[in-house]
Write a protein that binds this DNA or RNA. Structure first.
Lengths: 340, 340
DNA sequence: ACATGTTTCACAAACGTTTCCAACATAGGG
DNA sequence: CCCTATGTTGGAAACGTTTGTGAAACATGT
């Protein structure tokens, strides 16, 4: 009835043992701890395994070993270019430690975040969680069962790697202040998002410290379209510079300003946040706060790996990496008041 | 020695059974086939499970069931925006069928492709393979052990979902021909890539059929930077329109042309390929051949699911979806010869 | 009240691997 | 020549789950 799908049953360790004329335990040893078995026997076993195309059954191995050799990574949105360097870096490091990586995308949805984490928890040895929206108690309920490293968000529950946006934000505000801007807009991102709250807080503080008036607009969706709408509100608010929640929003802003014939940076300065790969490729290239996302990825991965290594919790139970401003071509001196 | 990591052993089905005062088999049935157990007993079991925070051990279940409830997806490059709608769509469908998805990125590297597929093969019930570079025999050696659907590439080995670029390419060439272009460039992608060969072949044929001279340049890397270089070569070749291998290359072309003060589409028409999300957001929005990548994703996923359903191989063992031209603003009438 | 059928559950085997323990052979030292 | 250390192997238990088999309990019809 099921026919062609399972023509031939996969070779087991017993089949290899039979062919090589040894016991299954010897096969296992030949494959996993070469030192414990006679060289010539081992050779024979290896040949038999090769001949039968033997591939160990991961489920059986996991069952007895109590570990899966899989790691998990949860990100809010694969399509968000901000995360691609992150994913790539984690993947590289994880692969090097000969783990496989489970990757899940939560579509920026809290429910999916929780569900994905739960589904993943039982089949990985540990996970890196980048879930800005997940409530703390849900996070905790996962962390008790599974080794977890939190990326991009502070946590008392599990080791975390975060980014200190302070330096970058202060540099950004100092930069526009030096260019003569005194009234700026902040286009905020999703209301529930931790990073949005953080960015807003730091911009507010930095602007106050430097004597720049900050108009907070939004929330806008953290994508291109959000910036499109945000641009109009910012223009209406009469600002001369715009801090966008992230680069995608900044791109949307620039596109909309261009449509309306407002020159960047001549009539309006635009600053992004994140420094996604695209930011430097825009026209003009975007001035933005660079987030050290690759460094975060590497730190998270090695934290998780040491956590799994059994050498107790990683030495710095939390780590924070500094963001900094990258000045490109979307910022310029404030336009003079037309009355001059 | 290992200390804090494994404070408390995970609850097993036996613990639940003991607490509920039934046998392990009853617990299993209560959880998996509710009809086979008395309602009141079942309630008691469920409560015990809840109380103990019981989560079934996937490895043990996989071992006896012979399936993992995981599916795999291999793509060349997560960072390539062309694949993000693909990944999203596959993910959605797979998740709906209550499978988990293993996602791997091969960094456009043949070796990694093969390695990732092999590593994945033993821990998924089936996989969707988008591996333009993998040699046919490697592909076959995987397909014999694991149900596989090939996306984006033809195959006699396994069911495949491909895109027919013919209509799109012919529309593109007809479009530029109608605008008066008679000498165009094709900026080719990676030499070994199947899709590059295919695109080149179709463009060559269509141009010949329509009486358009085609200058083939490259190969260029299929990223922004490739287009940057490609633009110079195209200008040097004296063409009036450029067919880029893909949208990213087209973006690079436009950026470079802009740097050199060559107006698009006034002095040079540019056409992309793929219609990535960014294409419509560019300035000006990019005319491009739209690849029905989301449809491919959906078709691949359902193919794999029916393949796994055990109802024999899916009815159409191969499926092909048509690409079409999307006309935006980077194409215009050919510039008149300066001599006029 | 007895045979019969149905529901509900417990027991045990099985999945494929790893690893502890014991057994055997061999070699070396006294 | 015996005792012991060492090296190599096989047997068996264990990991946690599912499921076939059979037994008990119970209801039903006569």
């Amino acid at each position: 009835m099921e026919g062609a799908r399972e023509v031939t049953r996969a070779a087991t360790i017993h089949a290899v043992a039979a062919l090589a004329g040894v016991s299954p335990s010897t096969v296992s040893r030949a494959l996993n701890s070469p030192g414990l078995v006679n060289a010539v026997t081992r050779q024979r076993v290896l040949e038999s395994a090769e001949q039968l195309g033997y591939q160990p059954n991961r489920a059986a191995r996991s069952l007895v070993l109590g570990r899966t050799s899989n790691l998990g990574l949860i990100v809010p949105d694969i399509a968000n270019p901000f995360f691609t360097p992150f994913i790539k870096a984690v993947q590289a490091q994880v692969r090097q430690a000969s783990y496989s990586l489970f990757l899940a995308d939560t579509d920026e949805d809290v429910e999916v975040e929780v569900e994905a984490a739960r589904a993943m928890a039982k089949q990985v040895d540990g996970m890196i969680l980048c879930a800005p929206r997940m409530p703390g108690n849900r996070l905790r309920s996962i962390a008790v069962h599974t080794p977890v490293v939190i990326a991009n968000r502070q946590s008392r529950t599990a080791p975390a790697v975060t980014m200190d946006i302070g330096p970058g934000v202060r540099q950004a505000v100092a930069h526009v202040h030096a260019l003569g801007h005194r009234r700026c807009a902040f286009l905020s991102g999703p209301r529930g998002s931790w990073s949005n709250q953080q960015r807003l807080r730091f911009f507010t503080a930095a602007c106050q410290a430097q004597g720049v008036e900050l108009i907070v607009l939004g929330p806008f969706e953290p994508v291109f379209g959000g910036g499109y709408r945000g641009a109009d509100e910012a223009v209406a608010a009469g600002v001369t510079a715009i801090f966008a929640y992230n680069d995608l929003v900044a791109l949307g802003v620039m596109s909309r300003l261009n449509d309306r014939g407002i020159r960047v940076p001549g009539e309006m300065s635009v600053l992004g946040f994140d420094d996604i790969p695209m930011a430097s490729m825009m026209n003009p290239p975007l001035t933005t706060v660079m987030m050290p996302i690759t460094a975060v990825a590497r730190a998270s991965a090695s934290m998780l790996l040491t956590l799994l290594g059994g050498n107790g919790p990683p030495r710095p139970a939390a780590q924070e990496l500094a963001a900094r401003l990258v000045i490109r071509s979307t910022t310029e001196s404030a336009a003079r008041p037309t009355g001059l």
